[in-house]
Structure formats: structure tokens, C-alpha cells
């Protein structure tokens, strides 16, 4: 049973990354009509930014959680201003090709300097309150041993996902965003700067990817290709869940992570492929995806 709970936890963690990444993809697709193939590379950049912050400037994990998404988000906004914005009005496929090229460049540059092996990033050991050593160590829940950091990743990701959902579905800014997704020309006529909103949206989506990268750095090590295979799984998650609903992305992401974790326990040979197999099944039964609109 211990092993089953451990795999479920790993599944929940992977699910948080799927949720954070597919959420960003959905938000970006809504505003820019682009599938951001560079999402995996930007996730990797988030992890590397945390690594650089620690090893070059001594800035630790907690600040990295804030700084890395901002730095990578700004990088993303520069990409949007200099390149992606010129694709408006063209076929969607050009956005995919352009961001695929950006992903190759970013991953290639990092591979040149850091090879393909992983760089370690320690779990923070502060603040120290009583017995707590930051996020290190673990606690005994009676039925399983829970490493504190892993529990933290799941809870924090869930909070960030729900905050994003709240921002988009329940605030005035989110209302502008949804309106601009439906009809950008009309929203512009109301005096809202839609191009700036598009840039900020891209920054937000990319920032979420970078945040996932920082969260994963202590678990999965920091590697130039850490996002390359992940993004393909996230694409499958997006196909399964559809990009029509924010909450749908979150639920699908976590659910698929858990299913993957269960597969690792019951039939480990299929753990790499289970998400893709589920995608095929969903396409056969309900081609529009679980929550998606027809596209």
C-alpha cells in the first residue's frame, strides 16, 4: 500500500505540472490563437532561472518562486512583441511552427552550455521553525510517509491554478480578457488596449510555465530537455480536456496525473504511454474533448 500511495503522490505532482502548463496553453490559445510549442522550453528556463539565482547570486528558492516567473514572463513578452504579434491573421499553423523554432533555439543553446545531464537543486531548508527545516524532511501520516516538499508542490500548484481561474472568471480584468477572446475588435472600440492585453496574457501563460519549472527543479533536477518530452504529454492533456474551459484544464491535468501514477503502480510498462492511449480513447468516443468546444 505504501508504494501505491507514493505513486499516487508522484501522479498528483505530475498532475500539478500538467495543470499549470495546460492552463497556460489554454489562456494563450484563447487570446493569441497560437499553440505555444515553446511552453516546454520556457518551463525549463524557469527551472534554470532558479538555478542561476541560487548559484550566481545566492538568492534562494522562495524568492525564485517569485522572480523566475517574472523574468521568464518578461522574456516571453519580448518574444510576443518581436515575433508572435506579426502572425496575427495568419493560419494557426504558423504560430505552431514559429514557437517550435523558438523551442529548438532555447533548448539547443542550453544544451550547448549544460549538456544533457541534470543539475541538482536542493530543497530549501529555511525558514526553520521548531522542528521544520523549510520544506525538507517529511511527516508520517499514519498510512504513508509524506515528503514535505512534495506535499507543498501539490497544494501550492492547486492554489495557483485556482487563483488563475478566479482571476480569469471572476475579476474585471478577466472579464476584459474573455471579452477580447470572443471579439477583440469590439473590445478595442470600448477603449481597451487589446494588443497590450495580448502581450500580458502571453506573459502570464509563460510565467505559469516558469513557475512549474521552479517547482519541479528540486524533484526532477534541472535539465535542458526537461520540458521537451513533457510538452508533448501536455498537448495530449489539452486534446483530452479541450481548451474551452479553465477549470476543465485544471481538473483534466490533475486527473491524468493521478491516472498516470496509478498506472505506474499497477502496470508500470504502460506508464509512459497511458496519457496518449487515453487521448486516443477520448477521440474515439467524444472527438471534441471532455470539456472543449468544437474546433
Amino acid at each position: 500500500m505504501q508504494a501505491l500511495y507514493a505513486q499516487l503522490l508522484v501522479g498528483l505532482i505530475n498532475g500539478s505540472f500538467y495543470a499549470l502548463l495546460s492552463l497556460g496553453l489554454a489562456v494563450i490559445f484563447g487570446m493569441l490563437n497560437i499553440i505555444n510549442f515553446a511552453h516546454g522550453a520556457l518551463y525549463m528556463m524557469g527551472a534554470f532561472t532558479a538555478y542561476f539565482l541560487l548559484h550566481l547570486t545566492g538568492i534562494g528558492y522562495w524568492w525564485a518562486l517569485l522572480i523566475a516567473p517574472i523574468v521568464v514572463g518578461i522574456f516571453g513578452m519580448v518574444l510576443e512583441r518581436t515575433m508572435l504579434q506579426w502572425l496575427a491573421g495568419l493560419d494557426h499553423l504558423y504560430g505552431l511552427l514559429l514557437t517550435f523554432g523558438i523551442a529548438l533555439i532555447v533548448q539547443g543553446v542550453f544544451q550547448n552550455y549544460f549538456g544533457s545531464s541534470g543539475l541538482p537543486y536542493a530543497i530549501p531548508d529555511y525558514p526553520q521553525i521548531g522542528e521544520w527545516r523549510g520544506l525538507q524532511g517529511g511527516m508520517n501520516l499514519g498510512f504513508m510517509f509524506l515528503p514535505v516538499y512534495r506535499g507543498w508542490v501539490v497544494i501550492f500548484s492547486l492554489v495557483v491554478c485556482l487563483a488563475t481561474w478566479f482571476l480569469i472568471e471572476k475579476t474585471r480584468l478577466g472579464a476584459y480578457l474573455r471579452a477580447a477572446t470572443e471579439n477583440p475588435t469590439l473590445v478595442r472600440a470600448f477603449g481597451i488596449n487589446v494588443p497590450r492585453m495580448i502581450t500580458l496574457t502571453y506573459g502570464l501563460g509563460v510565467g505559469l510555465a516558469a513557475l512549474a519549472g521552479v517547482l519541479s527543479a528540486p524533484i526532477n533536477q534541472v535539465r535542458p530537455l526537461m520540458g521537451a518530452d513533457l510538452i508533448i504529454v501536455v498537448f495530449a492533456v489539452v486534446v483530452i480536456g479541450g481548451m474551452g474551459s479553465i477549470m476543465g484544464s485544471i481538473i483534466t491535468g490533475f486527473a491524468l496525473g493521478v491516472i498516470e501514477g496509478l498506472t505506474k503502480y499497477f502496470y508500470p510498462e504502460a506508464s509512459n504511454t497511458v496519457v496518449f492511449v487515453l487521448m486516443v480513447l477520448v477521440l474515439l468516443v467524444k472527438p471534441t474533448g471532455l470539456t472543449g468546444r468544437a474546433a
Binding site: F29, I35, L96, D229, T273, V280, L283, P287
Partner: peptide, 23 residues
Amino acid sequence: ISIRRQGIYFSMITLALSQLLYF
């Protein structure tokens, strides 16, 4: 399988299917 969706989804599905085959 992949022809069931169009445009950008078609690209993502073919990519995912080829990754499935890779594994």
C-alpha cells in the same frame, strides 16, 4: 483517429500518436 479533429488539434494529435509509438 487524428482526422477527427482539425487545425491545430490535428497537429497535436499526430505528435502525441508518434510519441506513443516511440515509447
